[in-house]
Design a protein around this nucleic acid. Structure first.
Lengths: 241, 241
DNA sequence: TTTTGATCTTTACATCGTAAAGATATCAGT
DNA sequence: ACTGATATCTTTACGATGTAAAGATCAAAA
């Protein structure tokens, strides 16, 4: 089951160097990249840590995303991230905020690429699922992590923006303005339905819970084709042969 | 002996009793229930551990569900669960199987309580969400835990049964038989849509991501009312004032 | 140049999962 | 009834993790 048992599999770089060399700035961490984008003290941690965290996340999944693993990946001591993010919740929340921004960009691009409101809806839904499939670790972090702190401004704002985009898209497909003050039950139901459908589909797909359904479908049917059929249904169209 | 002065933060029950009395079977663990269903060695662990695990889960959430916390709750040593479940994955998987069975019972009851296929669908959907609201820890364990082992027969079978019930319900509402051999794209889309909608709604609700929408609705609008409106929409009914 | 403060490293500790060895009670076989 | 075998539970031990605290190091202000 690949319990990931020993965890020693890292130990990639500089196992012997820690002899307390003192002085010798050229011998800094730098086990990985050493590009010129290190204009600061030891380099631009904060940014480097976030990149390392995303790599660890997509490589080892959510359970592998630990402060120490990120520090290893970035080639710094295990306590270095603390100074930049406070604790694991801090790091994870900042990373999730980045995810929501990437996600928002992808959704906006899909929306802009389609002409009619109905086409925009389909394109957005496909982009939604496509993002999750391309970045399953990130999507899981954003939507299933118990360690997110939404009181952090960056995360709050980024996720808020994602939601606003969704609400605007649904409003457009209904040809009405979505107020920021109040919603009719019907508007709320439309928004919640769209979000629930696509979010639920994505979660079930990432969790492998649709594989049985997909296996019973004609050879070569992709998740995207299934999603398309679902959207056709919920749009009230007649079944297609 | 009786080190035990470690991990005392809980210490909810019987904190003084661990005096190592040797001999004296009546003084066994039994810090909690002491019913007559203890026909075995020290009592019926396995069952007691599962009950303790559910309590810990619903009290402290998924992150609080640790092997040692369950052992504490049951009043046994921290390594006792290992012998019954192998590891944390084992315990968690068995507990999830129990959850799927509870869940299946609730869904079947809802289905049986309604008359027409369409009413059955609505009742089932409400029962789905109601179960998750009543047992948020369990639902999270079943649908968002990364530590489930579906190769375990009990879990595989229990979750399989849940899915079969869902497929059967959707088939009934479409007045057609769902084959176990193959599905049409339309049938698959109907099943996946129903599941995605209700599962997505549940996840978003439990994560608090619908609270903003609910807050913009007329005073006193409950999640269930929102769900009802959503189901009305997806059934293709006209909006209701 | 010297001091200061931010950045990073060491060290330390409590908790967790898990393995292994020691204790204890139940049961089978005589 | 006694004795050994076996399942059950406890102790002990180890590596991993998050996090706090103290020490070291470097950029830049003074």
């Amino acid at each position: 089951m690949a319990r990931l048992s020993r965890e020693n599999k890292a130990a990639r770089a500089a196992p012997a160097r820690s002899r307390r060399v003192k002085r010798a700035a050229a011998d800094r961490p730098a086990p990985k990249r050493r590009s010129s984008d290190a204009p600061y003290h030891h380099g631009d941690l904060h940014e480097a840590l976030l990149k390392a965290a995303e790599q660890v996340l997509e490589r080892d999944g959510l359970p592998g995303l630990t402060l120490r693993a990120v520090a290893r990946e970035a080639g710094v001591s295990h306590a270095a991230p603390t100074h930049h993010f406070g604790d694991l919740t801090g790091l994870v929340s900042e990373l999730a905020a980045i995810g929501f921004r990437q996600f928002g960009v992808a959704m906006a691009a899909a929306d802009a690429s389609a002409a009619t409101p109905s086409e925009k809806g389909v394109a957005s839904a496909k982009a939604y699922v496509a993002y999750a499939e391309a970045h399953p670790g990130m999507y899981g972090l954003m939507f299933r992590s118990e360690r997110l702190d939404y009181s952090r401004p960056s995360l709050h704002e980024a996720s808020e923006a994602s939601f606003a985009g969704l609400a605007r898209g649904v409003g457009a497909s209904r040809r009405e303005q979505i107020s920021k003050e109040s919603l009719s039950l019907d508007q709320a139901a439309a928004i919640a339905s769209a979000w629930s459908l696509v979010h639920g589909f994505t979660m079930l797909l990432l969790d492998g819970r649709l594989s049985k359904i997909l296996k019973l479908l004609p050879e070569g049917t992709t998740p995207e084709m299934l999603l398309t059929a679902m959207l056709r249904l919920s749009a009230g169209r007649p079944p297609r042969p």
